[in-house]
């Protein structure tokens, strides 16, 4: 069934249509939540909350933006709300930092190189998690999810100039941290 028909039925309270519709978006929503929250438990809580918010609001979706832009806007807002709510709590340990969401390692790699690559990946994820939330959101949407600057501006309800600035500063911070660990990042060609 086409998306517009599913949206219409979901807006009328059809939970089955909603679940079918959102089944097409849940993997990307989860990827965003995981990279924002840094661990699967919080990401799954954010995913569920985002789904409920979308369900409650879908009757008011007016197609002024694309449906996916609207969905990821709500997803990102849900994650940001959760992160701000947690701000006053002690930092969650990153010991359980997830390893999901990476392309499979080249089977031709030696075990040593695979291990080094794993270390680099986990460290980058930790650095992303250390970015301020607004910067992290912009970098994740651009450099991981591949959205355009215009789409990100709509999702984060900011102007394009602000988004470009957040992304540039976020990348600069990541770059500096990577450059500060040559013993990790220079060991093997990525």
């Amino acid at each position: 069934m086409e998306e517009s028909r599913l949206i219409q039925r979901a807006g009328a309270g059809d939970a089955a249509a909603f679940n079918t519709l959102m089944g097409m978006h849940e993997r990307r929503m989860y990827a965003v939540a995981l990279r924002m929250c840094g661990n699967p438990e919080d990401a799954q809580d954010c995913l569920q909350e985002a789904m409920l918010r979308i369900y409650r609001a879908i009757n008011g979706f007016k197609a002024q933006s694309s449906f996916s832009t609207w969905v990821y806007r709500i997803t990102m807002n849900t994650c940001l709300d959760e992160l701000r709510r947690r701000k006053n709590r002690p930092n969650t340990s990153l010991d359980g930092l997830y390893d999901a969401g990476w392309a499979p390692v080249d089977p031709g790699q030696t075990p040593e190189k695979s291990a080094m690559l794993g270390d680099m990946r986990r460290q980058l994820q930790a650095y992303i998690h250390e970015l301020p939330e607004d910067m992290r959101a912009a970098v994740v949407l651009r450099d991981v999810e591949g959205y355009s600057y215009d789409e990100i501006a709509r999702m984060l309800d900011a102007n394009v100039g602000t988004i470009k600035s957040r992304i540039s500063r976020g990348r600069e911070k990541l770059r500096e941290k990577i450059a500060s660990k040559p013993e990790l990042f220079d060991r093997v060609d990525v």
Binding site: R27, L47, G101, M120
Partner: peptide, 11 residues
């Protein structure tokens, strides 16, 4: 490294 991050993850 970013290029190796999957944009979608199985729930």
């Amino acid at each position: 490294l970013f290029a190796q991050m999957e944009p979608e993850i199985d729930v």
